[in-house]
Design a protein around this nucleic acid. Structure first.
Lengths: 343, 343
DNA sequence: ATCAAGTTTGATAGCGCTATCACATTTCTA
DNA sequence: TAGAAATGTGATAGCGCTATCAAACTTGAT
């Protein structure tokens, strides 16, 4: 007696199997798993035994389809997690969302915007509950997202004139302004800027912060290298010689990341340039190593952890109440300059 | 005239809407999107217009359910992506899998095994196609996975006696043995080991490699600090004094990560200890900064990029052929010692 | 012009689950 | 003790999609 299979099945144990085993209806099994308090103790126990015995695993696709509900998945779209501080932010965000049962799906597009929009289609198909944009720089892409807006969207980074539902600003420009001001007030005159990852807006914002500070204090703004290379240790080491060659009078060098600055510090040691006496050096980001480096690096910290927490609660509030009325002590989100031995 | 809604819907545009708009059957629309070559040009164009006009987004849950097919999603489970090299591995893996249309879902459990198994249930519910374990250390967890084995499982790291379908070994112990041997052959006698992240097996393997090499050359193995702290720059700086206090005769210090070693280098500078003349220092991992540091760091590189490529192709072959018959030049996967100025 | 073989299309029936409602059972009130 | 209210359970009908198969339309060879 051969059974005729008319259709592919997953071969999984289904709710029906469990129901038959436990001698109850499928609906009762469903309830026992989804809303246990609506099922009597006796049946609930029976069902639990059946579930364990058969090794039942619910089929999320079917559940989603039947309940027409969202997935408790929040997508984070970002061009790239550049550095340690962004990782802090993400980690903090994930932790807070996980507490409420949400899963974070991280998508790094590496700045291929076509990829981003392609992913977007895929994401919308996955019944996700919200989208979080982190330092997405392409305005067209943002507009495209908003055009198909189906779920709440939280933007972290530059504010696109209220295009997004919610926006948490990170002011890299301000942070760099503050840092540069500190350096200027220390009395340095010939202050250069070393910027890498030229192609990313966020680094141009840092550059801009330096520029504004220099202008504000009537200092010359021509001592700049703005390179299209990764902002890492090697690039720092590599570009210091160019800076010194172009502007031998340089007495302070502001770098757009801690990695660049550390590379510069290493190169200074190789060339027996005494920091900060001959050359002051600063970084950006307050990475783990900037406290330990020799000499310790003056840098500026963005409160990514707090921003993560803040953005998580903002998003959760929006998902729950469908209304954002959020008041926070935003001073907690302000940049902090860390003065150390290198200036 | 009010319509009675008997059931919640997602409110999405459905295939049916598209079909009606285009004046064809739903099945034709499904085919036009899934297998376009099986639909005539004329209808395909009509349908495309309808899709664009209505902004149709397919519902993955329904598609999965109907086709009873897997999701083209591969889950990577790992306790933690420790360092840059592991990131290289992951990146390389993702790239290769993406080429074949697979999405990688990264799950970092941060060593909460309960979390890992909880996630596993969730994952199995998501119709994923394969599971990739990266440096998962908990044997119970591995056994539990294998017990419910539904999809192919590839293990990267320690081989659990053929428990997994496929295993790609990374021999941290061998790598450390090779590095230690180099240091010994340079003539150093009083060689210490600095290990952090004590609680993770992978670091204990590195420690073990050092131990074996020291024994093989009849050198004493007591100069060890094995700390339960993060293996970062700070810890390196912090623990060097302890090493020197305990064993002032120390002439070489082998660290289990590049970060530790760099922290040690910084502390040496602070204490005017000349590297390598008074103390030789080595790292592990060949991170980006180890080439630029001052002095440049002798270290050992694991070929994570190649391992990523190899593991991707192994997995893909398994998914396609359902049979693993893989031959590779495994010498490409051997560790490489990078001799630099610090030894 | 005729028929066999290929191609294109759509009606139908589920995939595994849950919303809904009707019915059965228990508990509470007067 | 009857009747109302609350609770527990299961039959049914989809959620939006695709596998399947039969019907309609091509094509080309005779």
């Amino acid at each position: 007696m051969q059974e005729i299979k008319k259709r592919k099945t997953t071969g999984q144990i289904t709710l029906f199997d469990v129901a038959r085993y436990a001698g109850v209806g499928t609906m009762t099994v469903s309830r026992a798993l989804r809303t246990p308090d609506r099922v009597s103790d006796k049946l609930r126990q029976k069902i639990q035994i059946a579930v364990d015995a058969l090794g039942y695993k619910p089929n999320v696709a079917a559940s989603l389809l039947a309940s027409a509900s969202a997935n408790r998945v929040i997508a984070v779209i970002t061009p790239k997690i550049y550095d340690h501080s962004a990782q802090l932010w993400l980690n903090s965000l994930q932790t807070h969302l996980a507490k409420e049962g949400y899963t974070t799906l991280l998508i790094e597009s590496y700045h291929y915007y076509k990829l981003e929009s392609q992913m977007l289609d895929a994401l919308y198909s996955h019944n996700l509950e919200a989208i979080l944009l982190f330092q997405v720089e392409d305005e067209n892409f943002i507009k495209q997202i908003l055009q198909n807006k189906i779920v709440p969207i939280l933007n972290i980074g530059k504010d696109y004139d209220g295009l997004t539902n919610m926006n948490v600003g990170i002011d890299d420009s301000l942070a760099m302004y503050m840092l540069t001001e500190h350096v200027i007030k220390k009395g340095y005159q010939h202050i250069g800027l070393l910027c890498a990852n030229q192609e990313y807006q966020i680094f141009q914002q840092r550059l801009h912060g330096w520029y504004k500070a220099m202008l504000a204090y009537h200092l010359p703004t021509h001592r700049v290298i703005n390179a299209a290379k990764p902002a890492n240790f090697s690039t720092g080491s590599e570009l210091l010689p160019d800076m010194l060659l172009n502007w031998p009078e340089l007495d302070a060098l502001i770098c757009t990341t801690d990695e660049l600055a550390c590379g510069v510090l290493y190169e200074c040691q190789r060339r027996h340039i005494r920091v900060p006496y001959q050359l002051a050096v600063t970084g950006f980001g307050d990475n783990e190593f900037s406290q330990v480096s020799f000499p310790a690096l003056t840098t500026v910290a963005l409160p990514y952890k707090e921003i993560g927490e803040y953005s998580a609660s903002l998003l959760l509030d929006n998902l729950k109440n469908k209304k954002v009325t959020h008041e926070t002590d935003l001073s907690a989100l302000a940049p902090v300059v860390r003065l150390r031995a290198s200036v």
